[in-house]
C-alpha cells in the first residue's frame, strides 16, 4: 500500500490530492480500484486527467517479469562493491559492501559498531569521493573522530574539509522520524539531501536504538514501524543503487548465546550480517582495539567465518597510501 503523495506523477498536484483525500481515496490502491467516473464527479476534476494519472500510477507500481539475462546485465552494470577500507572486513563481506543491499553490524556496547560505521563513512567520502548519508540515532557520531580518521588518511586540510562536507548527517531520535526520513529519502529525497551529488552509502547507526523500545508488550505498532523502515531501506538500496549499512544491538538467547536483536522478522531484512565481539585473549598492554567479527548471514560466503578486526586500522599511523596518492596524481 503506497499512500498518494504530491508530485508522485504529473498532474497529481496539491489541490487534486486534497480533494482525493476528501473523497476517501488515500492510497494508490484506492485510486486504481475506484470507479473513476464517480471519483471525477466527487472531486470535480476531468475524467481524462484521472484516467491519465491512473495509467501512470499503474505503470509505476506494477511488477513486470524480467528475464534472468536482463537482470544479470543490469547487475553487472549497476552493482558496485564498496570497500569498507578495512581488509579483514572486506574479506568477510566478499570484498566489501554491495550496492543495492542491506548489510548489518551487530554487537554489544563498546564492540566497535560505530567505529566501523565512521571508518566506512570516511573511506567512502575520502577515498571514493562519494557522498554518504549518516543517520545517527544514538548521538554517537563524533565529528572530531571522523576528522582524526581523515587526518591519518591525508594531511591536506582542504581535502579533509571536503571529505567532511560529503558526509551528510541526520540526527533522529525516535522511530517515527526515522521512518518518515527514510520514506522521504526513498521517494527522491536522497538526491536532494545530498545537494545533487551521487550517494553511494547510507549508514543507520543504530536501527535498534529507536525501534526496540516500541517492540514487545501488547502493541504491535513497533513491529509495523520496523517493517516500514526496513522496506524503505531495501527499496532505497535497490532503486538508487546505494549500499546500506545498519547497526543492531545484541541479546542473549536461552542458553546465554549472543544473537542480534530485533527478533526473527528483522533477521530477514539484511542480506549480510556481521557480529562484532570483543576478543577475550588480548595481549596485555594494548588491550582493546582488537575485535572478532563473525559472518552470521550471507548469500555469498560460508557462514560463521571469523576474522580478527583492528579498530585502529582506520586511524593507524603508518601510511600505505603513499602509493595510492602517487596513483591519484598519475590519474589527474
Amino acid at each position: 500500500m503506497v499512500g498518494l503523495q504530491e508530485g508522485m506523477c504529473p498532474g497529481l498536484d496539491g489541490g487534486l490530492l486534497r480533494s482525493l483525500l476528501a473523497a476517501d481515496v488515500k492510497t494508490v490502491e484506492d485510486l486504481v480500484s475506484s470507479d473513476l467516473e464517480e471519483v471525477a464527479q466527487k472531486c470535480s476534476v476531468s475524467y481524462k486527467a484521472l484516467y491519465a494519472i491512473r495509467r501512470v500510477l499503474l505503470a509505476q507500481h506494477t511488477a513486470f517479469p524480467v528475464s534472468g539475462a536482463d537482470l544479470y546485465d543490469e547487475l553487472l552494470s549497476s552493482t558496485a562493491i564498496i570497500s569498507t577500507g578495512n581488509p579483514s572486513l572486506d574479506k568477510l563481506l566478499d570484498s566489501g559492501l554491495y550496492t543495492g543491499e542491506v548489510t548489518e553490524l551487530s554487537g554489544g556496547p563498546g564492540s566497535g559498531k560505530s567505529q566501523v560505521c565512521f571508518g566506512v563513512a570516511v573511506h567512502v567520502s575520502h577515498q571514493l569521493k562519494q557522498r554518504v548519508i549518516y543517520i545517527d540515532t544514538t548521538g554517537g557520531l563524533t565529528a572530531s573522530r571522523l576528522l582524526e580518521m581523515l587526518q591519518s588518511e591525508t594531511s591536506d586540510r582542504d581535502e579533509q574539509m571536503e571529505a567532511l562536507q560529503r558526509i551528510h548527517v541526520f540526527r533522529l531520535f525516535d522511530a517515527y522520524s526515522l521512518r518518515d526520513r527514510l520514506s522521504t529519502l526513498r521517494s527522491g529525497g536522497l538526491l536532494q539531501a545530498s545537494g545533487g551529488g551521487s550517494v553511494k552509502a547510507v549508514i543507520v547507526d543504530s536501527v535498534s536504538a529507536v525501534i526496540s523500545p516500541l517492540l514487545g508488550g501488547k502493541q504491535n505498532e513497533g513491529m509495523s514501524l520496523m517493517i516500514q523502515a526496513a522496506l524503505a531501506l531495501k527499496t532505497m538500496a535497490k532503486d538508487f543503487g546505494v549500499a546500506v549499512l545498519v547497526t543492531n544491538h545484541v541479546t542473549r538467547g536461552g542458553r546465554g548465546e549472543v544473537q542480534p536483536g530485533l527478533g526473527a522478522s528483522w533477521s530477514h531484512i539484511p542480506r549480510s550480517r556481521i557480529l562484532l565481539e570483543r576478543t577475550d585473549r588480548a595481549p596485555s598492554g594494548c588491550s582493546s582495539t582488537l575485535r572478532s567479527a563473525t559472518l552470521i548471514k550471507s548469500s555469498r560466503q560460508p557462514c560463521l567465518i571469523k576474522e580478527e578486526l583492528d579498530l585502529q586500522w582506520w586511524s593507524r599511523s603508518e601510511r600505505r597510501s603513499s602509493g595510492k596518492r602517487k596513483r591519484d596524481e598519475a590519474d589527474s
Binding site: 557520531l141 572530531s144 574539509m161 558526509i167 551528510h168 548527517v169 531520535f173 526520513r181 539531501a193
Partner: peptide, 18 residues
Amino acid sequence: SFNAGEAVTALELLQRER
C-alpha cells in the same frame, strides 16, 4: 541551534562540537 529533521554535513557538526 538545532533543527531535528535537517541534514547537516559532518563539517558543520565538527564546528558545533568545537
